[in-house]
Amino acid sequence: MPSDELEGALREMLSRRAAVTRAVAVDPAGVAIRRADRIQRRRTLAGMGLAVLVVVTVSVGSLHVRDNRPPAGGTVVIGDPDQRPLVERVTAPPGPDTAAPIAEVDLLIDDSIATAQGRRVPLLGIGEVERVHRLTDGRGWLAVGAPTLAGRFLWAVAADGTAQVLLAGADEIVLDAEGRQVAWKQGTVLAVAGIVDGELADTVRAEAPAEAVPLRFVNGAVLVRLAPDRPGHVLWPLRPGSLDLGGDRASTHIFGALPDGRLVGGTTPGVGLPTCLTLLDPARDLAPSRPDCGPETAGDGLGAVSPDGRWLLVNGRSAGVDSALLVDLVTFDKPTAVRPAGPPMTGTVVWRTEDTAYYADAAGGLVRVAVDRVVAGRPAAPTALPGVPAGELPVVVSGG
Rank of each mutant, 00 (worst) to 15 (best):
L238E: 15
L326R: 04
A337P: 00
R180I: 11
R249A: 15
G49Q: 13
G61K: 05
A360V: 08
L175A: 03
A390C: 05
A9V: 12
L175P: 02
Q117Y: 15
E296L: 09
R284D: 13
P291L: 11
P389E: 04
M345L: 10
V105W: 03
D322W: 04
V24L: 14
A210C: 05
M13S: 11
T136Y: 14
L258T: 02
V157D: 08
M48N: 08
L50K: 07
A357T: 06
V87Q: 09
P71E: 02
D244C: 01
L200Q: 07
E12H: 08
R42G: 12
T331C: 13
R66P: 07
A143T: 01
E130M: 09
A18R: 14
G179V: 02
E211F: 07
R131A: 11
G246R: 04
G316E: 02
V129S: 02
T268N: 13
A168F: 04
T148S: 13
R42M: 09
V56Y: 05
P394I: 04
L10V: 15
G179F: 02
E354Q: 13
A380R: 08
G198N: 10
D111Q: 08
L123R: 01
A18M: 12
R69M: 14
L366E: 07
C276N: 06
I195S: 05
V396G: 05
E172M: 12
C276T: 13
P231L: 11
A156M: 14
R119H: 15
W351S: 04
T203Q: 14
L286S: 03
I109K: 02
I126T: 10
D281Q: 12
E7W: 06
V24Y: 05
L385D: 01
G342V: 03
R42Y: 15
S112D: 06
A376W: 05
P282W: 03
A103S: 09
A298S: 06
H64T: 15
A381V: 12
I109Q: 01
A319L: 08
A191I: 07
A208G: 03
A360M: 03
G138F: 01
I126Y: 00
R119K: 15
V76R: 01
L166W: 02
G125D: 04
N68T: 14
S289I: 13
V375A: 10
T268F: 13
A183P: 11
A18N: 11
